[in-house]
Design a protein around this nucleic acid. Structure first.
Lengths: 207, 207
DNA sequence: GTCTATACAGCGATAGAC
DNA sequence: GTCTATCGCTGTATAGAC
């Protein structure tokens, strides 16, 4: 999505083993990775292009060689983060049959992706930057792609009447996402355990 | 919202029936109420003092007659929001004996306060504005005052081994708080029902 | 590809007239 | 109490040299 290559002249001289986010090998990937960490740490609004440039080791004007705007850069970061999350979920899905065990592993994977990696938690930031309307449909699409995996997992659960599966998904993800606000490694509890604990709380629901 | 009085000359000539979210009767209360709505809608960073002034019907310079800084104004808004939440929780606590019924009512009250009122959801915003360090201890204190009521309620529940009460509280509140991000009145579900649904999901835990 | 230099807008905040 | 006028700063973004 929206790769925006933009290489206008000269040879790419790249082997196109491109992307692979946390070990980005060229400048473009480096910027995305650095930006993800800053957005996660300070939020979108409070991270300036100058901050990003400084953390990358270049000057702010140079950023615009790679990305046409701050919002476009946000889209790349969001995209990379959702890719991590979606891939992890697909992997769990393929490897597990039991519905509740699957949910437990999805929860653990979600928490790990959110709390463990250098900082792509931006992917589930409560609200998108404003004025980003041009990109919003693409952001929503990425988010839905991931959430539909969770929705499917919830669909396979045996749940009593009175439990709304859509609300189940929203509150399940909400409990996990909110952990951004309080988690600290010092808690003595691991991200994976946070996810597993949530499913332990919900599991008695099974018919 | 957006009263836009703009009377520039003459005396105030107020009958003091002006606006009242917390029954605030004067300009100061009006500003707090208007600001709460704007912070909830657009976030702290993206709401300028000029925005607030315009929505109040005055000019930005005048705000500084009432509040020394934007951060001080944030503190007032946060304080008002937490007061709503804390009062509601105390009321529930006094009126209910059964632990699970109490939790259900606390959840419903929390959701209502968060989603229903004109806009004090700022009170549980994921992160405080930065550079607000001088006020941070007071913000934390207000938050803890409320959360300790929830903690007490969780303490009285009969829970199986393997459930951490502290984590229970955090994930319980997380699921509720996150609803800010997806709730819309069009869902056909009421805020109170959102809270009750969450407790319905957790209730089978009881020993 | 990166830097220099800068345009231009918007921000929080203040001083002083009324 | 409110407005007028403005200061100083920081933000995104651009143009053009190298």
């Amino acid at each position: 999505m929206a790769k925006e290559k933009k290489r206008k002249v000269g040879r790419p001289s790249r082997n196109d083993s491109d992307l692979d986010i946390l070990s980005g090998s060229d400048r473009r990937e480096q910027i995305i990775s650095v930006t993800a960490a800053l957005f996660s740490e300070k939020g979108y609004d409070r991270t300036s292009m100058r901050d990003i440039a400084a953390a990358t080791g270049i000057l702010s004007g140079s950023l615009y060689y790679y990305f046409p705007s701050k919002e476009a850069l946000f889209l790349e970061v969001h995209s990379a983060g959702m890719k991590i999350l979606t891939n992890a979920a697909r992997e769990v899905w393929a490897a597990t049959d039991d519905p509740w065990e699957r949910l437990e592993k999805l929860a653990a994977a979600h928490s790990k992706a959110l709390l463990e990696n250098s900082g792509f938690m931006i992917m589930v930031f409560p609200r998108f930057p404003e004025g980003i309307d041009a990109f919003r449909p693409e952001l929503i699409r990425q988010r839905n792609e991931y959430e539909s995996i969770i929705a499917q997992a919830v669909e396979t659960l045996d749940l009593p009447d009175g439990i709304d599966r859509s609300l189940f998904r929203l509150q399940f993800l909400g409990a996990l996402n909110w952990s951004q606000t309080w988690y600290s490694p010092k808690h003595g509890i691991s991200p994976a355990e946070i996810g597993m604990h949530l499913v332990r709380m919900l599991r008695p629901l099974r018919g």
